[in-house]
Design a protein around this nucleic acid. Structure first.
Lengths: 134, 134
DNA sequence: TAAGTAAAAATAATTATTATCTAAGCTGAG
DNA sequence: CTCAGCTTAGATAATAATTATTTTTACTTA
């Protein structure tokens, strides 16, 4: 992935800090502000939470990343990719992606409701395979 | 609805403040902390946000109400009823319930993923019928 | 190179939430 | 009935989370 061009496509400067944010998100899948901060501070010891929040907001507004509000936790951030659902394990706290045909679901719900829908947030909670064996 | 017995079933005292919280939620469907505060202060002028938060947490833990974390807004609270989806209008900000067969969806996703799921949060965003005509 | 712009850094301010402490109100045992 | 014990509201303080402001740095381009 070339994050430099991704940022430039959205008229944002490809600063080292932003590139690192995106790279961390790519590795982590989903990450909250604290996780992000503790990772990025390793490469940029002088960065502040304010800078982090600022950049997250900028990239949120540009639809480069999205904010995922989950039950019982702080919001997590992830790179925007194909629409998908999220699975949460209530025991170990993990969060994974699940590709799902959200389009047909959205269409169904649109018809049923009269709304003109184009986005969905689908979160399922329960036990992951590992945690079921305990 | 008899909120007194609802609270007692969960070993919570049916204080006037709690009853009013539940009654407001029943009227509003979904409401955030500020909306709740501005309504309840009419009947209980001395109530504080701390008391409100405290009671919300108590009732959340007892599964009398649930917290709904929505994109771009503060969490909203609602009475627990049958599982359903939520529709958000991105223009007027309204939020409505839509009854949906979440069970089969959960089963599908469980099979597909290997997770043992029992809860879902389904949020759809777009334009409500009114806002489509503008 | 100098000017203009955008972002980072540093910090302050604000907002949101939680914790602590006291006093009031209910309940059950005597 | 009344007192002891428990739960909660109220009042306030403390903490945590987020946003705003100002200064400094770096990059771009004329």
């Amino acid at each position: 992935m070339n994050y430099v061009s991704l940022l430039k496509q959205h008229n944002l400067k490809a600063t080292p800090q932003r590139l690192e944010i995106l790279s961390i998100m790519h590795q982590s899948g989903h990450i909250d502000i604290d996780g992000l901060f503790s990772k990025i501070i390793q490469s940029f010891p002088s960065i502040s939470l304010a800078t982090l929040y600022k950049n997250l907001h900028i990239m949120l507004n540009s639809n480069i990343i999205l904010e995922l509000k989950l039950p019982n936790t702080k919001p997590k951030y992830e790179l925007i990719q194909a629409p998908h659902a999220h699975l949460l394990c209530q025991k170990c706290g993990s969060c994974i992606d699940l590709s799902l045909d959200t389009d047909t679901l959205i269409k169904e719900v649109s018809q049923k409701s009269g709304y003109k829908l184009h986005e969905s947030t689908l979160i399922f909670s329960g036990l992951c395979p590992q945690c079921q064996n305990h």
